[in-house]
Amino acid sequence: MAGGAATGGSVQSETYREARTWLLLPAWVTLGILTLAPLTIMLVYSFLTKEFRGGVIWEFSLAAYDQFFFDRGLFGDEPPRIEWTYIGIFWRSIWQAGAATVLSLLIGFPTAYFIAMRPQKERALWVFLVTIPYWVNLLIRTVSMKFLLRDEGPLNEGLMAIGLISEPLGIVNTNLAVQLGLFYSYLPFMVLPIYAAVERYNLALSEAAADLYAPRWTILRRIVLPSVRPGIVAGCILVFVPSLGSFLAPDLLGGAKTFMIGSLIEEQFKGNAGNWPFGAAASMILLTMVLILLILSARPSRKGVR
């Protein structure tokens, strides 16, 4: 304890404090350059005036936020009405990311459970196998997904060959295609934290529950799931958050009706549609939403003692 040392301790603790400052410097610099500075720049830009074809004019303006939430007509002189376009895009993004998360959980949980139940020396191999596809670039994986799903692709042809369907399902350019794309992009982020949680789970608890007359599904619901809940929450956040801001899967697998926040923001900074303050404002709104979500999910949830 500081101050606990006898005489001479103050000299020692001073050197210690100085050393500590220097040793912490890299962490502060990293945090400053990689987190605080970009966020500040983004926040500032969202309150500036747009320059056509990209860039900003250094003049305070609420125009970006105004454009996001309100519709003032083509010439901006009508009384403001709620602008549903962007809110709609946000809502769709949440829904798409949510569906991808649920899909990942449904596939990821059994996968993680399976791996955790393998003999100790086999587990590393299984985890390795799960991560192998992710050595390939995300863009290439997403394009490959399109080839798999398209009407002439192996999925449709295969299903038609075995006679399950008579004509292609037409998955590409639908919400489902985007969800599948997102699911495939981020699946390991679901599997790995759940695997870590299940591996720590004490199997004797399942035995104790079985011993106390609980059938299998009840054991899963009442004992296993609550025990590995932190892993599940972590997995869901790690899939949901990047899915929400993703633009590759919606751009490549979706159509005009599957436009998501990521694409909206991307458009503001790339190409001719450039509106940097609006892109920055949309990013800040997205960030706020994610933060609220994280705070909600971090709340300790002990469903009261019955």
């Binding site: 004490n202 004797a204 104790a208």
Partner: peptide, 16 residues
């Protein structure tokens, strides 16, 4: 196990 009218006290208790 869940159909046997037998209960167990486990070595490390295995409390939920």
């Amino acid at each position: 196990p869940h159909k046997r009218p037998i209960n167990t006290v486990f070595q490390n208790y295995a409390l939920f």
